[in-house]
């Protein structure tokens, strides 16, 4: 099995629901917490396994077929732009260099399902794995001194005590736009495989060779409506020429 997430950049509105649900589930879970620092103080911070960042993309014609708005440049062209929200957690990479660099063996990738985990009872908090991760997926738990990261909710997805439908990562369950999907990429018929194949995915630092398992579904091309209604005659005539139809109540 190759378990992972498919995250839809077409529908993610950047609401941070997944990040908070993740924090809630993992903050106090058996896998160890995601603590907060200076929670009510000057500069609150904390450990998160999932973070959402927001970007603007300008000048990519794929996503802005219409020049619109009142925001013209000197040449009179309005920028073609788009806002993109990108939630990021561990990609559960196939070539998880974060695992190979770990000297203690605390970081490991499970053979059976490909989930990359940290064993807190072995981790010495050297940060080396975080250095090796291109995607910013690992954050040190400063209270416990051990590295933390997305567990793919391994403590939910196999929990037989949960109803079948609940055996999903917390972030996937929470996501209000259903922009997050979970499944097995080894199974070509799984929802995530089908989505990735049909929608196309973003390549994110692929040249580093980590082979991320998670897929970011590319934004769809904006829908265009081809109008085929007849334009009627000129306006002033039209108002005069309005024809009543015989419509019986």
């Amino acid at each position: 099995m190759k378990l992972g997430l498919a995250i839809d950049l077409d529908t993610c509105v950047g609401c941070h629901a997944c990040a908070v649900a993740c924090k809630e589930w993992n903050g106090q879970s058996l896998m160890g917490g995601a603590p907060d620092y200076d929670a009510w103080g000057k500069a609150p911070s904390g450990t998160w396994y999932n973070r959402i960042r927001h970007y603007e993309l300008e000048g990519d014609p794929t996503y802005s077929p219409h020049r619109c708005g009142s925001h013209a440049d000197t040449a009179g062209h309005e920028p073609l732009s788009k806002t993109i929200n990108v939630p990021m957690s561990c990609m559960h990479c196939e070539e998880a260099h974060c695992v190979t660099v770990c000297p203690t063996g605390a970081s490991y990738k499970r053979a059976e399902d490909g989930i990359v985990l940290v064993d807190p009872s072995r981790c010495m908090g050297c940060n080396y794995c975080a250095w090796a991760c291109p995607y910013g997926a690992r954050e040190l738990d400063q209270d416990a001194g051990v590295m933390k990261k997305c567990t793919l909710c391994v403590d939910r997805i196999y929990d037989e005590q949960l109803a079948e439908a609940d055996r999903q990562p917390a972030c996937v369950l929470a996501c209000p736009t259903h922009a997050r999907h979970f499944g097995d990429y080894d199974d070509p018929q799984s929802k995530v495989s089908l989505l990735a194949a049909s929608r196309g995915t973003q390549s994110m630092l692929d040249d580093l060779g980590y082979k991320p398992t998670n897929a970011y579904l590319s934004p769809r091309k904006p829908v265009e409506v081809k109008t085929e209604l007849p334009l009627r005659q000129g306006l002033s005539d039209k108002a005069k020429a309005f024809v009543n139809r015989l419509i019986q109540l």
Binding site: S81, V86, E139
Partner: peptide, 26 residues
Amino acid sequence: DALGFLQGNVRLLDVGHSHGTFLTNE
């Protein structure tokens, strides 16, 4: 490359946290 949008300019609008994180510190 990082985001996979190869055409156009990409820029950060908001990083999603007001203060430092492990990643920004490190």
